[in-house]
């Protein structure tokens, strides 16, 4: 791919890989939550990297003449990165911390009742 964002996409895929590997391989519950959090960061980085184009500026318009001049605006809007993935990731990060906190609350409650963080000990819900 020649879009110029290979480095970011590769980093994002690496984060997703490390996060999911932590979730599947580790037995410690807090480690698993850390893995989910890392994978979440990776997904966010991937979405923003897919909306980025080289040599374009942030989606913040700083020129008042653009309000009246449609021609300049058309030129300028070709020099701005995609604002939609950024807006989605903005809310996804906040949801991510809420979900992480909920998972950690369950971890704390499980530790209070079972006295362990080892996920292989929680076999009661298995069938």
């Amino acid at each position: 791919m020649m879009a110029g964002n290979e480095l970011y996409v590769a980093t994002a895929l690496g984060l997703i890989f490390i996060g999911l590997a932590t979730v599947t391989i580790k037995r410690n519950l807090i480690k698993m939550v850390i893995g989910f959090s890392v994978a979440d960061t990776g997904v966010n980085l991937l979405i923003v990297a897919l909306g980025w184009f080289p040599n374009r500026t942030a989606p913040i318009i700083d020129d008042p003449s653009l309000l009246s001049d449609r021609a300049t605006l058309a030129v300028r809007s070709a020099a701005i990165v995609d604002p939609v993935p950024q807006a989605l990731v903005l809310t996804a990060i906040v949801i991510g911390v809420g979900v992480t906190a909920l998972m950690l609350a369950y971890v704390i409650r499980l530790y209070a009742t079972e006295g362990s963080l080892d996920v292989s000990r929680f076999g009661r819900m298995k069938w």
Binding site: V9, L13, D82, P83
Partner: peptide, 13 residues
């Protein structure tokens, strides 16, 4: 990833 990679803004954006 290259298949999903857009080359410019979509119509909505």
């Amino acid at each position: 990833a290259p298949i999903a990679m857009p080359s410019d803004l979509g119509p909505v954006a």
